[in-house]
């Protein structure tokens, strides 16, 4: 096991995880809002925000899928040491991490069942940058409308059409975090 796998955890786990969760809650409750989180460092190419989100939300009870863009021995070791999440395939994942291209096609991830729509995959999507511009967002959590530079529209429109089933997304870039729950309506600007 390399040294890299042993470093990069929270210095003060209860407090840093609490702050990171509040940022994640705020981002998901207000789609399009960009929050800043940090404190964790995972092997490249994982962003600081994504590493912090993994430490905050994942543990031995949450099967995790690593898309080809992020699957590396170094990251596997880091996850084994810090999180203990079992690595799994797409269908069994509670969380998935990767770039938008590597995570496609989304259809293979769990969308929940009509009895238990919460049993669906939460996707952590690494993007080059996040900015409050581009696609138009409306729905719960948004007073009038919000804007976010999402990679596309069709996938999110299909996701919304399946409500209450669907996937929930976190987008991470550097220390920036934004989110898109299944309830949001996404349109071209």
């Amino acid at each position: 096991m390399r040294d890299e796998a042993l470093t990069g955890g929270f210095a003060d786990a209860p407090v840093e995880a609490a702050r990171a969760f509040r940022a994640a809650l705020s981002a998901l409750a207000r789609p399009g809002r960009i929050e800043t989180i940090g404190g964790a460092a995972a092997p490249a190419p994982v962003s600081e925000a994504a590493a912090t989100l993994l430490l905050t939300l994942c543990d031995g009870e949450t099967p995790l899928y690593l898309a080809p863009s992020h699957d590396s021995p170094a990251l596997r070791e880091w996850i084994a040491f810090h999180i203990g999440a079992p690595l799994t395939d797409r269908a069994g994942a509670a969380f998935a991490l990767g770039t938008w291209e590597a995570l496609a096609p989304l259809d293979t991830f769990a969308r929940g069942t009509s009895d238990y729509p919460d049993r669906s995959t939460t996707l952590i999507v690494e993007v080059p940058r996040l900015a409050p511009e581009g696609k138009r967002l409306t729905g719960p959590g948004i007073e009038t409308e919000a804007r976010l530079n999402l990679p596309e529209v069709a996938a999110f429109r299909a996701n919304r059409a399946g409500f209450p089933l669907g996937w929930d997304f976190f987008f991470t870039a550097g220390t920036a975090l934004a989110a898109l729950p299944r309830s949001t309506v996404v349109e071209d600007a």
Partner: peptide, 23 residues
């Protein structure tokens, strides 16, 4: 911390599906 993570995951699913009761 593990209990908090479990509750936090439920809270996020609750926010994503407004009004649905998450076990």
């Amino acid at each position: 911390e593990q209990t908090k993570r479990m509750i936090r995951r439920a809270l996020l699913k609750g926010i994503a599906i407004p009004g649905y009761q998450v076990p």
